[in-house]
Structure formats: structure tokens, C-alpha cells
Amino acid sequence: MTETIGKTKLTFTVNGRETEVLVDPSWTLLRVLRESLGLTGTKRGCEEGDCGLCTVIMEDRAVDSCLVMALQAQGKTVETIEGMGHEHALHPLQKAFIEEGAVQCGFCTPGMIMSSEALLRQNTHPTVEEIKVGLSGNLCRCTGYTKIFKAVAKGSESGGRL
């Protein structure tokens, strides 16, 4: 890759779709997702990796999109909440979050679901302790986490092991 001055082309895969967008080198992945691509399901939070609101999956791993420079996503695969499911074809985690009552204000929910999905890709049968660790980078102020743990267990293949 060559050195970039001013706005430059970022090519990456977003939710399975090859995407090209002009970005300034100083932009974060979060900004590109929300502002350039209109993917506002990813929430902006503390902007320094303390809250997990902006969690997306990049190359199969959960990352804080506020701590990834946009151009670091060059050629990479990025998944956001918009890529998880649709109203009539919910992702199992989305379904489980609804059924278990794991959603309150909902502001942490997209990030929580992305972290849960990243966890389940590494560990299809997490224990409660492993779920707690897997979600420990995502703050929630409404739920006390309890119903989220249940939702993740339900959304995993282990369904109902809690």
C-alpha cells in the first residue's frame, strides 16, 4: 500500500459486501461506519475503549471500532449489528436477547451482541464464567448483565446450560 495524503480510498468487506469509501487518514473505523456508511447501529461511546459500545467484529474478533483507524481496516472483513440478522430472519443471539429480556435501554445491545457473537465463534459452549469474561469489555448500566448472560447461553449451542 502506498502512502496516503488527504482523503483516500478504503476498500474493505462490510457485512459481507465489498465496500469502497473515501476516508481521511485521521478517521476511525467507527466514524466511517456511522458517518460514511450510515451504519448507526454501532454506537459511539467513550471514544477510548472503556465502554465497548462501538464493538464490531473485525477478522472474526471483537474490536472497539473507536480504537481502529479506518485505514487499518484496508482489505479486512468487518461485521456490524446490521449484518447479524433481519426482522424476519433474526440471528439466534438477537432472538435470545429479545426472549430473555436482555434489552433495556438498548444502547449497549449492538456492542453486546457483537461481543457475544465473537465469543461464540471462539467458544461454542461457554460457561457462565467464560461468558462473563467474554462480555467484560462491554459496559451495561441497565440490566445488571444477568439476563444478558442467559441470552448468550441460549443463543449458543449450549442453550439453557445456565
Binding site: G101, Q104, R141, C142, T143, G144, Y145, T146, K147
Partner: peptide, 14 residues
């Protein structure tokens, strides 16, 4: 009832 539990769980964490 589930919503009541959810309120309690969140309150306890706070």
C-alpha cells in the same frame, strides 16, 4: 415479571 426481575438486576448492579 421478567421486566420486574430485569429492573431488580440492574438496580442491584448499580
Amino acid at each position: 415479571p421478567k421486566n420486574v426481575e430485569a429492573q431488580i438486576e440492574g438496580g442491584v448492579a448499580t
